[in-house]
């Protein structure tokens, strides 16, 4: 069974990859259904994972007398109510969408606000965690860019040398990000190839 899984994965991967480079109608006709199946499978996997979260993980917690029992109860009730409303009203119903977003948006906005404050406090302690030159450079660049982007240097737009210097400063993070992204792209390429040749098998092949 393992070898069959691996063969299917490799063949599917090769067909999809070839489809990017070879515009042959035969390969395209095989590639498109494979991509469609992948999207369908991904959706089904999401559904299975949600059902597992609610009816296995949180159901177990409800039966145990743990600290987070209350949270699991709220999640369970919220899930059942949303499911019933979704089934009867349909996901495209504007009332249903309004109801869901009226709950979700304020909660996520509040979390974003909490995150911003927590991050600010945590970043103050950054130099305690990163006691090295990279930590110092990171801290220095944060301070410099906070000053530059705060607008206090807006009066320098008329001074040619300083204006050029500041626009040069803005290019530094772009160059750094490109360097990091190049490394990530090469790493992604190598990882993709390992999966493609069946060396990495996260599907238990």
């Amino acid at each position: 069974m393992k070898i069959i899984n691996t063969i299917i994965a490799i063949i599917s991967g090769v067909i999809v990859l070839l489809g990017y480079f070879i515009p042959s109608p035969l390969i395209q006709s095989m590639r498109q259904p494979l991509l469609d199946w992948a999207i369908i499978l991904s959706g089904i996997a999401g559904l299975i994972a949600i059902l597992n979260l609610v009816f296995s993980v949180h159901w177990k917690r409800l039966k145990e007398n743990g600290e987070s029992k209350g949270f699991s109860f709220v999640l369970f009730i919220a899930f059942i109510l949303t499911l019933i409303a979704g089934i009867f009203l349909g996901p495209s119903n504007t009332g249903f969408q309004k109801l869901v977003t009226a709950v979700q948006v304020p909660i996520e906005s509040s979390l974003m606000a909490v995150l911003a404050i927590t991050m600010a406090f945590s970043s103050i302690k950054m130099l305690q965690r990163q006691k090295n030159w990279m930590g110092f450079v990171f801290f220095l660049s944060v301070v410099i860019f906070l000053i530059i982007n705060s607008g206090v240097l807006a009066f320098t737009t008329d001074i040619p040398v300083i204006n050029d210097l500041l626009s040069g400063f803005h290019q530094v993070p772009v160059a750094g990000a490109r360097g990091i992204l190049l490394g990530i792209a090469l790493g992604s390429l190598a990882t993709g190839i390992r999966v493609l040749i069946g060396s990495d098998r996260p599907y238990n092949g």
């Binding site: 991050m119 950054m126 965690r129 990530i184 990882t191």
Partner: peptide, 30 residues
Amino acid sequence: FATTRNVLIGEELYAIPAYLAYSPMHLASL
């Protein structure tokens, strides 16, 4: 980087399996 002590930057992420001595293929790919 700002909030934890042990961070991997850029392509270092892709080196984890090789550094944990996962398989020759990981070393080769590195």
